[in-house]
Structures are given as structure tokens and as C-alpha cells.
């Protein structure tokens, strides 16, 4: 480890970290916003469910590097455009979370849904004030996976040259210099752990009603 290098490069490392954070988080936010309605539709309709889950499952199988490369020709963007990374990770997040949201809504006890229906909740009212709140633990678990794997996948975009911590890896490879690689790995891990912790905290705030054991 070369501490001098770290101190000297700290400013640019910080810039990469901020980019990495943005590229990891923004797709999760957009992805969740898209997955909620899609997951709900999948949960409601059996036929549509296999179509939605089949399609998103297919998207999930496309290796990330391949997706980064293919998107410019689909979106008309330049290869270096960070938008490619955001779109690619949004695609993965949606693919992962649609299933999660659908599973989460499936996990709401039948009696609870029936009771709400029989009490006279309208469909949307029931979704917002009963089903989604009860589905939070399952959705949060999926969100954790999405956030953590995004942090890892973003770094791959360094191979096409996008700004983020992954550049430390390619830089280290070119210079045969371990310090930036280790710094990059450590920062990625820290970022993943912090974001994961934030999701856990948020979920805990939203679910004061669960037995404590569920969080363990």
C-alpha cells in the first residue's frame, strides 16, 4: 500500500466515489418506481405475471458488459455516456425488483387482503394503505440485493471508460500498481455496506410492527 499515492489522489478518488454512488443509487430509485406498478400487475394477473417475469428474467441474463456495449446502439448515446450505465443498471434493478414486489404482494396474508376488501377499501386505497406497507419486509430484502449488486456491477463500466471507482482497477492494471486496486475494492465494499445499512434502517423505520426476530 502506498499511502502517499492515496493522499495525493484523494480529490480525484472522492470524485470517482461520488460518481459511483450516483450511478449505483439513481438506477435503484428509478427501478423501484418502475417495478412497483409492474410488480403489482404481475401479482394481480397470472397470465401477465409469466410474461412480465419471463421478460425481466431474460433481461437479467444479459451480462452487464454486453449490455453496456449494446445500449449506445439502442439509445443513440455515445459509448462513454453515463446514461448507458444508468439505463443498464435500471434494467437489472427492474428485472430483480419486479419479482420482489410481486412476491412481496403475494406474501400479504390472504385474510388481510380479504378483510380490507370486505371492509370497503377501494383497489388503489388498499394497495397503498394495506398491501404495500405489509409487503415492505420482502421488498426491502430485494432492494438490499439490488443496491449491493449494483455497487459491484457499476465498477465493470470502467472497461468502457465511465467515471467511477472501477477506473481505479483499470488504472492499477495498467500500472501494475496494487494500491488503487485495493482502495477501489475497499471503497466499493464500504459503499455497499453503507447503502445496505441505509436500506435496512429505512425498512426498520417503515415496519415498527414486525416481531424483532424478522430483522435479525
Amino acid at each position: 500500500m502506498n499511502l502517499d499515492w492515496i493522499v495525493r489522489e484523494s480529490d480525484s478518488i472522492l470524485v470517482l466515489l461520488v460518481w459511483h454512488l450516483g450511478l449505483s443509487v439513481v438506477p435503484v430509485v428509478i427501478g423501484l418506481a418502475m417495478a412497483l406498478p409492474l410488480g403489482w400487475v404481475a401479482h394481480r394477473s397470472g397470465a401477465f405475471k409469466s410474461v412480465v417475469l419471463g421478460t425481466t428474467g431474460l433481461l437479467y441474463t444479459v451480462p452487464s458488459l454486453a449490455l453496456f456495449v449494446m445500449l449506445p446502439s439502442i439509445l443513440g448515446t455515445r459509448i462513454l455516456d453515463p446514461l448507458n450505465v444508468v439505463v443498464a443498471l435500471t434494467v437489472y434493478t427492474v428485472a430483480l425488483l419486479v419479482r420482489t414486489v410481486s412476491d412481496g404482494l403475494d406474501s400479504v396474508p390472504v385474510e388481510t387482503v380479504q378483510a380490507a376488501q370486505a371492509m370497503g377499501y377501494r383497489t388503489l386505497q388498499r394497495l397503498v394503505s394495506v398491501e404495500l406497507p405489509v409487503a415492505v419486509p420482502v421488498i426491502a430484502a430485494g432492494l438490499r440485493v439490488a443496491v449491493v449488486s449494483n455497487v459491484s456491477v457499476v465498477s465493470i463500466a470502467a472497461l468502457i471508460g465511465t467515471q467511477q471507482l472501477g477506473l481505479l482497477f483499470t488504472q492499477g492494471a495498467q500500472l501494475r500498481f496494487l494500491t488503487p486496486i485495493i482502495v477501489g475494492i475497499v471503497l466499493c465494499l464500504v459503499l455497499a455496506v453503507v447503502l445496505d445499512g441505509l436500506v435496512v434502517l429505512l425498512a426498520r423505520r417503515l415496519t415498527p410492527w414486525t416481531p424483532r426476530a424478522v430483522h435479525a
Binding site: P109, E111, T112, V113, Q114, A115, A116, A118, V130, P133, V134, V136, T207, W209, T210
Partner: peptide
């Protein structure tokens, strides 16, 4: 109903 169907949250 049978299992009450209370809102767990």
C-alpha cells in the same frame, strides 16, 4: 373471518 385478517402493520 376465521383468522381475523387483522392488518399486521
Amino acid at each position: 373471518i376465521q383468522h381475523a385478517g387483522l392488518f399486521p402493520h
